[in-house]
Design a protein around this nucleic acid. Structure first.
Length: 318
DNA sequence: TATACGTGGCA
DNA sequence: TTGCCAAGTAT
């Protein structure tokens, strides 16, 4: 469970939430019983929500195929949803003491600098080289789990991407990059992913203290509840929003804000709206928004619509 | 093989 | 404000 939470997520952020996960889902069986929506709800705000659904599916497989016990061999681990080469290696080495290598962003950086390897660590050849190096290291280790964790911890705390603290590094005397003074250029940064700019028109209807939400099925926040919306390359008129969204009415925007994800820069525009009676919406009490799985930006949309200072009742009725 | 997938901290 | 980065996986 901790490794699922830690994928692409920093320790400090996971540490805040881990106790609640253990309390609510102490065993694979308990997680299966709680259901996928409970896991998604607990996952709120952590991002990469596919991991939440995968974790529940993994719990199901563990119960169905492995008698409720997390399997210890690599092949069985790799067959669990959401478990790839890194996670399987981490569990096998840290939990079960096997001589299995792991390579994450930290390890790739540490290994590249140790060997002063100037080529990219991100492409296939770089990854292959890293895994080979990690394999040799862990093969010779007395304690594979501790060795793997030490590599990651060194990368997270000392051998950092920028301004590495070489003076405090226990490996400084055997580090090729340190000797060559190349630590700031090794490994070379990955080519940045293009950031798409999109406008997200969010449609908020609040009635009797409830807000209309629907389950997103694709793209950003797929699988989460959020106010109905339309995404366009640039801002469009209320009438166009109405036509594209199938709303009955769409009123003038009452709030705007920007935020950025890894791959897109989103300009949010919040419109009061209403929907046809036959639209399949979930009417969630505003006071219970804290306990539903909802995209965090969607929550911000609702908060903006409720917004202090906004003459909300009149506008939202529109 | 290249993309898509979140969020918050930091320089 | 902007860009980069973080204990990766699935498609």
């Amino acid at each position: 469970m901790s490794e699922a939470l830690l994928q692409q997520t920093q320790v400090a952020r996971v540490a805040e939430r881990f106790p609640e996960f253990m309390r609510r889902f102490p065993t694979p069986r308990a997680m299966v019983k709680a259901g996928p929506s409970a896991v998604l709800e607990a996952w709120r705000g952590l991002g990469y929500y596919r991991r939440a659904r995968s974790l529940h599916a993994a719990a199901e497989r563990i119960v169905a195929v492995h008698g409720g016990q997390v399997p210890c061999d690599m092949q069985a681990l790799l067959e669990l949803p959401g478990v790839g080469r890194y996670t399987a290696g981490a569990v096998a080495s840290i939990v079960f003491g096997q001589h299995q290598p792991i390579v994450d962003g930290n390890v790739a950086r540490v290994l590249s600098r140790l060997a002063d390897r100037r080529a990219s660590a991100a492409d296939r050849e770089g990854q292959s080289w890293c895994w080979e190096q990690a394999t040799q290291l862990v093969k010779a280790a007395k304690d594979p789990g501790a060795t793997n964790e030490a590599l990651m911890e060194l990368g997270a705390t000392v051998c950092t991407p920028m301004q590495p603290r070489c003076g405090a590094c226990p490996l400084r005397d055997m580090c090729g990059a340190r000797a060559a003074g190349s630590q700031d250029e090794v490994p070379p940064p990955k080519p940045g992913a293009a950031v798409k700019r999109v406008v997200h028109h969010a449609l908020v209807q609040i009635r009797d203290g409830r807000v209309a939400l629907e389950r997103r099925t694709e793209g950003l926040w797929s699988g989460l509840l959020a106010p109905p919306s339309v995404e366009t390359p640039r801002a469009i008129s209320c009438r166009q929003v109405q036509a594209l969204s199938g709303a009955s009415t769409v009123a003038r925007a009452i709030a705007r804000f920007d935020f950025q994800t890894t791959h897109r820069r989103v300009h949010f525009i919040v419109h009061p709206a209403s929907f046809p009676e036959d639209r399949p919406l979930q009417w969630v009490p505003l006071r219970r928004l804290g306990s539903v799985a909802i995209a965090s930006a969607g929550l911000r949309v609702v908060e903006a619509a409720r917004g202090q200072g906004a003459p909300r009742a009149a506008r939202l009725r529109a």
